[in-house]
Simulated scan of single mutants.
Amino acid sequence: MEMGTNTWVLKPIFGNDEHEKLKTINLNSFKNECIMCFDEKTDIMMYPCRHLSIGFECAQRLRNSPKCRECPVCRATIERFVRINI
């Protein structure tokens, strides 16, 4: 994707396998609640694992935590958070 002078390589949100065929996601069956607090809507994707499973407030808590910067799904080290509007 290109926007102005910036270029990004788009990857699927779920999964990490480059050889896996892209699958469509049924948004009607998508659980749109944070797995940490079960209250917020899910709108934060963690990179590099690309799990879309927490809300903005919980991402802020993870970001400000000096001890725990791990994905709550797979425990991979979080490099950055990306906000996704669904």
Rank of each mutant, 00 (worst) to 15 (best):
M1G: 14
C37N: 03
E40M: 03
E70Q: 13
I84W: 08
D17W: 00
F14S: 05
N6W: 05
S65M: 01
K41C: 10
C58T: 04
K21P: 04
I13N: 04
I35S: 06
F30H: 11
L10A: 15
A59W: 00
F81R: 02
V9P: 00
M1F: 09
R50D: 03
T77F: 09
M1L: 12
C34I: 04
I78H: 01
A59N: 02
V9H: 12
F81G: 02
F81A: 01
E18N: 12
K67E: 11
D43L: 11
L27C: 07
N32C: 08
I86F: 12
G55T: 04
C71W: 01
G55I: 04
L52E: 01
I13G: 04
R75C: 06
K21D: 13
C34Q: 02
V73Q: 02
E18P: 03
R50K: 11
F81S: 02
L62T: 05
C71T: 00
I84G: 03
F38A: 12
K31G: 07
N28H: 11
V73H: 01
L22I: 15
M45H: 01
I13H: 04
T5C: 08
A76L: 05
Y47M: 10
C71A: 03
M45E: 04
K67W: 04
M3R: 15
Q60A: 14
N28K: 09
E20Y: 06
K21E: 14
E2V: 14
G15K: 03
H51W: 07
K21L: 09
P66M: 00
Q60V: 15
E40A: 15
L10I: 14
N32D: 14
A76N: 04
E40I: 02
C74H: 03
L22Y: 09
I84R: 05
M36C: 10
